[in-house]
Each structure stands twice: as C-alpha cells, then as structure tokens.
Design a protein around this nucleic acid. Structure first.
Lengths: 338, 338
DNA sequence: TTGTACGCGTTATCAA
DNA sequence: TTGATAACGCGTACAA
C-alpha cells in the first residue's frame, strides 16, 4: 500500500515547481508543451490521483450534491435517484445519498452533515414527520441551493419540482365520482407534508364540485407507508356498515397496497365491494392481482428535472426560484372498477 | 446569504485562540469549563457548522464511503443500498452513490473520482462489461479498502460478500431435474462476472450429477438486464422444435422477466410449455401472473453484512480478507410447475 | 513560461 | 489550560 502521490512529489521528481505541475495537469495555457508532456508522463507513471479534498478547500466547491430521501426501496425514489444521478454525472458531480427513514430528526442531522461536507447543493424530499422548517431555512441562509422534489416546502426561498398534486388528485377523485361512486374515503398522507395536504385538497374539491358530502370519518390521516395504509383502512372498515365507503383514494400506492391487504382480509372484493386508487404508479401497481388505478408520476423524469433545476441554481445565483410542475398521467386499471 | 462561519471568526469574537475554540468544540479534555461553555454558546449563536473538508485534509479521513452499483432500480440494489446506508449511518459515515449503468468505462471513472474524493472505503458490485481488474487493484494499492458485494472479483486482495451462487444455482437446477425436466436451458449472465460464471457452473454441475447432456445451444450468454433476457430467449425459441428446452434457468429475475415476455409472445404457456426460474426474488417475482420460482437473496441483509465487513477493514488494517457467504433461500412458486 | 508567497479551515505539536 | 506555528494538498495572485 503506497500512500497517495502529491503534486509536490511529482515536482521534486522533475525538479520543477509545484505550480508548474498543477498547471500542466489542469490544462492551463502558458505551459511549455514539453514540460506538460513530461509532467503528464510522470503523473501517470507515479499513479497520481488528484486530491479533491484539498482542491475543494481552496475552490470552495466540492462537485458533490446531497440527496435526501425518506425512503429508498419504493420504486418512486430509486427511479428519481436514477434520474438525478444521470444529470449529476453529466455535470461532473457526485451524489451523497442520505436516507431519512421518514424521521425528521435523522433528516435534520443528515442536512447538517451535508452542510458540513460543503455540498454544492441539496435535493430533498422531506420526511413525513418533518414540520419544523427552520433547518431548511438555515441551510438556505448558508447559501447552499436547495431544490425540493415531490414533497415540497413552499415559500422559504427554494425551488420545488413535483407534479400538480392537487389537480391530479381532483381528477382522480372526479374519475371515481363520474363512474357512480358516491361514498368516497381518503387515506391522506401526513397533512404537514405538501403532497398530503394537496392531495386531500384535490379530493375535497372534487367532492364539492359534485355536491357530495365531506364526511370526516372517511378522511383518515395516515403516513406514506404500506403498514400505515393497512392500519388506516382497518379503522375505516370498523365503521358501521351503512357508513362504509364504496371507493378509496389513497395518498400513494404503498398506502393503497396496505389498504388492499386490509380490505381483502375482511373478505371484501376489489373493486366490487370497494374500489381503490393510488398515486405514483409504483412498479407493483400493474402487477398485483387487481391492477391499481393510479396517477403515474414519471419519477425518472422528475428526478432529472429537479436535478437540472438544482444545477441552474448552483451555476447561476440569480436563477429564478420557482415551482416546477412535471406532468402526471391518470392510469386507469381494474382496481377502480370503471 | 451569510458565508460559513469559521473557527477563526469565533476566536476573534471571543478574543481567544483558534485552537481553544477547536478544542472546546471537539470535546477535548483540558479545556476550562467556562471557556468551553462560552465557545459553545458563541458557536451556536453564530450558526457555526464545522468544515469537514478542512478537517478531512488534516485527518486524512472523510467519513465517506463510495458505493458503486450497476443498476439502481432493480429491487435488489435499492434494498442492498438501504442496508448499507443504515450501517454507514450508524458508524457516522455518509455514502457517495455512483451508478455504473453496467458500463465498465463509467465504473472506472466513478472509482477514480471516489479515490479523488478520498473516500475511506468502497463497496462495489461490478458492471457486466467489466473485465479489466487493474482499476480495482489500483484502488486497493492506494490503501483504500474495497469490499465487493454480489458481483465479486476474487483473489485481488479484497473481501467479498455474496450468496453461494454456485451452490444455489445447482440446487435450483436440481429442483427442476427432480421434477422431471430433462431438457434445460440456461440464460447465463456475462461470464466475466462472478455471478455469471458461478451460476453457470452450478447449472452444469446439476446436469452432470444427473447424467444429463450439456447442450451448448441451450446455454446462451446474455447480460443481467431484462431486455437482454428477452433477446437471449428469442434466440433459443428460434431453435428447431425438437431442440427446444422444457425449462429455463435464468441468471437473475430481470432476465427471467425478459424471457417470460419472449415466451408468452410466442403463445407458449408458463410453466406448461416451458418452465422458468430466476434468481434474487425481486419485488416483482411474487406479483407477476405466474409467480416466479427463484432464489431469495436477502439484499437488505447482504448490504448490511457487506458494509459491516467494509467498516472492519476501515477500522482495522489487519482485518482478514475473506469471502463471506450470506445464506440464500429457494422460493418455489408456480413458474417451475413443480 | 515558470516560480514564490500565501491562503483555504482545520488539527497536531510543542511551548508557555 | 491556552497559544503559536506548522502542516494537510492545492490554487490564486503576483513577480520574475
């Protein structure tokens, strides 16, 4: 195990100054052609690998961005990360991946570590338990660009890339109503998180539009995880029979899967007894026994757009802070019985 | 946007030396209690966030590990990454995620960048096109611990964590043979990659054990991706009818999915016309119309074991280089018709 | 074209 | 207990 070679060592080897070596290796102009060749050869021979740490310290730039996600295994996030990685890589950046596990505390500590490591920017989809936004403000006040994706925080000086959750949720709900369902329930995500709030809003809007009653028993705040969908659905299924809903709008696909499990455990049929729809078009949506009607989120594309926006912010301090909408798509399958 | 606060600024603010501030903030002994409190208060008030870049330069330690994967979206890798992240996080490390997209060139450049960023260790599952191992050797010669996981390279001075691919493949094949299948085909992964080579070896071993003919027409080298499975299967399906296999052993689940698509496009039924088995127990395996018989890899667990092994190497230069086997499990479903 | 001095923010070391 | 100085590896700015 040989230690890392430094510019200094190359310089000594060749009896020239460190700066000349640095310039030669960084394609600076004003370096004698022969000198450059000599340096390049020596660098190669010695196995020189530049020390980005030292470079970063001087340049105040790490060519690294942080990506904070609440989940890794749902197919939405891996796909988004793939999109992010491709854009980052094409810009010559690496990715520090941090996983909050839906926990605000872990998220906060991840953000501080990212700040410590002086990442050039951060992409984040917030945890379902996050409701204190001061940490995001602190990061922003440090001059680190932040772009939220999917789960956003608005009006704190950061751009956001997501689908039009409110509108998509309204369309989805409307689709159910137009197919004759009158008693609808909503398994809402955490309401302190944008997608939770907005999808609920869209749900209610559709009910109102068609003069349907908004029954608070039929709106259960849950999280974004499968098990939470299971529990929430059981709560609803324990209502007296005349109060039971005919259709369920779940805040996302995993919650829908949990709900489906609960429904089937009661011996009820989907969609005949209860129809259900989800949100995201997770990889499983089309494969489960009764394929799930859902809103396709184009996670890969969304990741790309979010990353591109982040690099715009990184490269241009005056880049406009905005809310970017990526188009989504209603995917009709059997679970809604339409 | 205020710039980052430095130790120097805190020191000036309090009229003490930088070193005292550094010591106070890093819980060094021999710091006056009052001084420490004063420093901590000032640091908090000013919003001090330590600069890990500078610290890393001095300490030659970044508390960052690199993770290089050939794929992000197949469920095997997200789950492995989740396991890795949890172990890393519990050790106080962050993760730089690099994606090789099965491309040896991208992989090499990712490894060099990771070396440049002076990660403390690297976890890697190699790309299907990687066959020049000199880059791995170079990284190792720099004293950066490397642990391979799933797709390993042996005998170059790095530990490896995987399932017992050869044995698992043999058992899987044997299972088919014991259920009466005599003409078996294998869609092998790239043979320059460990899992490709070993799973093929296991396949052949089982055939030999039962005295079955090894027909080279029925062993097609493909990659690890779904589309490659599709193409390879089509090649087999174009054989004259009397040569067609009755059962297929695919190198992994994605390849099996591709093959299934090809089989079904020909109007053949699984498992009645052709049986098929995969490898990994991908999230879709149990959900497709004819659930896939496969070998469960416990990706999350495997990620944890691999990460733990890496930290052992990082923390102890004398940690034994070894091949660690994580147990796998034969999962019998309908696709094999057993 | 090449070299020198200095600084990036932090810690190690030795002195006070 | 505290401080001064040097060093980590590199780039900027300026001088030669």
């Amino acid at each position: 195990m040989k230690a890392h070679i430094t510019l200094k060592q190359i310089a000594q080897e060749l009896n020239i100054s460190v700066m000349t070596v640095s310039r030669a290796l960084n394609n600076h102009p004003n370096v004698n052609k022969k000198t450059r060749e000599k340096v390049l050869k020596a660098a190669k021979r010695l196995g020189y690998i530049p020390n980005f740490i030292a470079k970063s310290l001087v340049k105040k730039k790490t060519y690294t961005i942080g990506v904070v996600v609440p989940e890794i295994t749902y197919s939405f996030f891996p796909e988004a990360i793939k999109g992010i990685e491709e854009i980052a890589s094409s810009h010559g950046y690496q990715l520090i991946l941090a996983y909050s596990a839906e926990d605000a505390q872990k998220e906060k500590s991840a953000l501080l570590t990212l700040a410590s490591k002086r990442v050039d920017g951060i992409l984040i989809s917030i945890a379902e338990t996050s409701n204190d936004y001061s940490i995001y403000k602190q990061i922003l006040s440090l001059g680190i660009p932040v772009v939220f994706f999917d789960r956003c925080v608005y009006n704190i000086g950061a751009s956001c890339v997501s689908i039009d959750d409110e509108n998509a949720s309204e369309m989805l709900t409307e689709h159910l109503i137009l197919h004759g369902y009158k008693r609808l329930a909503h398994l809402s995500g955490t309401l302190s998180v944008s997608i939770g709030k907005l999808r609920l809003k869209g749900f209610k809007k559709a009910l109102k539009k068609y003069g349907l009653e908004i029954n608070s028993d039929l709106i259960v705040e849950t999280g974004f995880k499968e098990e939470e969908g299971y529990e929430a659905m059981n709560k609803i299924l324990n209502l007296p029979e005349e109060k039971l809903p005919r259709a369920i709008v779940a805040v996302n696909d995993p919650v829908a899967y949990g709900a489906i499990k609960a429904i089937e455990e009661k011996g009820l049929k989907i969609p005949n007894d209860i129809a259900i729809v989800g949100f995201s078009d997770d990889i499983r949506a089309n494969l489960i026994p009764t394929p799930l009607t859902t809103v396709k989120q184009h996670a890969y594309e969304l990741g790309k757009v979010a990353a591109t926006k982040l690099f715009n912010h990184i490269e241009n301090k005056n880049e406009k802070i905005e809310r970017k909408i990526v188009k989504s798509e209603l995917i009709i399958r059997k679970s809604c019985g339409c």
